[in-house]
Design a protein around this nucleic acid. Sequence first.
DNA 1: CATCCTTATACTCCCTTTGAGTATTATATG
DNA 2: CATATAATACTCAAAGGGAGTATAAGGATG
Lengths: 332, 332
Amino acid sequence: MIEETGFRMERLKETAVSAAPPSRRATDAGQGISADLIAVLTAVTRGEPRVLTIQDQSALPSGPFQLEHRSLQAGLRAWVERQTHLPLGYIEQLYTFADRDRSGVSDGYPVISISYLGLTREQPASGEYEASWRSWYVYFPWEDHRTGAPPMIGESLLPALERWAKGDRSLAQNRWQRIAMTFGLEGRSWNEELVLQRYELLYEAGLIPEAWRTGAPAVPAIAGRPMILDHRRILATGIARLRAKIKYHPVVFELMPETFTLLQLQRCVEALAGRLVHKQNFRRLIEQQELVEETGELTADTGGRPAKLFRFRREVLAERAIVGTKLPIQRS
Amino acid sequence: MIEETGFRMERLKETAVSAAPPSRRATDAGQGISADLIAVLTAVTRGEPRVLTIQDQSALPSGPFQLEHRSLQAGLRAWVERQTHLPLGYIEQLYTFADRDRSGVSDGYPVISISYLGLTREQPASGEYEASWRSWYVYFPWEDHRTGAPPMIGESLLPALERWAKGDRSLAQNRWQRIAMTFGLEGRSWNEELVLQRYELLYEAGLIPEAWRTGAPAVPAIAGRPMILDHRRILATGIARLRAKIKYHPVVFELMPETFTLLQLQRCVEALAGRLVHKQNFRRLIEQQELVEETGELTADTGGRPAKLFRFRREVLAERAIVGTKLPIQRS
DNA sequence: CATCCTTATACTCCCTTTGAGTATTATATG
DNA sequence: CATATAATACTCAAAGGGAGTATAAGGATG
């Protein structure tokens, strides 16, 4: 039954903090290990980067890799399409995790988590699994720098991180250097791609509720909404990958409607990168790379002067192997 | 027994072309699937990029992920260190494959292959598993462009690819475009990172012996030395990853001895990239990024004027998150 | 020992890219 | 009709990167 619906409800019903070994294990008499396929499905809606979640926003869609699946991608597509009725377009593999101490299972057979990043446009998901779209930044409030560095970094994260760094004399210097590097302190600039490194640092410092499963709570939950198992780590991996990838491959267009204005495209990129982009230079970049073509139409929905509508030139994917789409990120 | 030595000898003893389902399957009474850890272990010796192989140069080291392994990396390290007695330094995950039609197993339980890239300096490997180091370019003779495009591309690959492209009228144009893009034809330049795309194209065109397992031989084996199962695809993935990575992360130094001259460093990079680099600009790049520091010593072993010896400044790994080490590749 | 070959290293030049602005145009709204 | 908001065009300077020349310092060769 569980295998047929895909998601392991036993596991999903656990709260984020208590994660007893799923009862499914007990029914597995076999010797082998098992592999879960986990999807980070992303869309950008009204200027917010969003992720498809299930189970009261606490889990990513996932299902076991099964005999009838011809390939990993095929298995993932099967699960997501059956469970959300969303057409799964662009997908790419993210990472394969199997750390015993992070999956919430401390004994029994190991579970391998094979994660994928998928890009679509947001559509209402079916309600069977409590599927809903949520902003990335609900889970990672320190990652959105579009209106400057979030106050919570200076107010709660950094003080707590500093306490942690000082907690071990011999490691203090090393720890502080990692903090400074990942958070862009001491003259260094913010690097939006270090999503996973920041999360892992906070995890190590005990500021992530997911870390408390293997021990006692260290500090109050100050660092974003948790998820079950290591799902938030997987989401961090997906965000990091996407933030890196938009700079050298035209994947943004998978998130855009058929036609769009250049500002809409820019807002989408900004939502993903979590920071603002220099408007004029952004346009220059897009146009000189011939990534888009005019549709000939205008739209007046933008507030000011009507904007030209563009469409993605799908041909470029065939013409060029790798397209440099570096972001003209605003420094001041 | 098999589990203890790690490599599945049954599978490894198969020839490259015939790949019957391994007998190990029969002993697995369990329901679960199984996961193999596969290592692409690379070194650069005397100007040649090399890979550690076993079983008469036809396989990559691999072993099953087991209960006692705390993590995937831990499992891989355990196998490689036990089997080759090499200290496994830098490793990173490559990709997880599980295509039923590519693994040589058309029925039975699926095998997941989790592959890793490892970088070391070449050391004699133990002989138990017929471990030996081989040049990458034995398996991918079309990938070494250091002395210009290999003649075999024009003499055998392109004619055969063209025949294949023309073999299907409706796909001909699309196929030819892919050929032109991956091999840098028609005004496009050679892109050394497209290792996997080129291999997959040749595979699709039936020019790779590994592809004949699921059908009849199409053409004589012209395209490099084969490997068992999909090991050559995994090697291609590793080469592609490494060629991309040396451009933005200082991983080359994992392959270098403690001290080295700048020309030695350059030759190493050239071996990996499969193409030549502009000497003066390469030095400028390395020095202005402060990746190295002088040891104060000179070496006269280089043939001409004695060269300064340098050592990698390991501190940069902590100082900066991502270092741009773009290659000043020679155009003319 | 003068010459040549080979490699090392310093420096120049110029074109392209890119960060950061200013200026101008076109709508909607009060 | 002034004003706000976008859209779009254009400028400018600094940095980066491709390509080459010039010079230095060894060994090998006759």
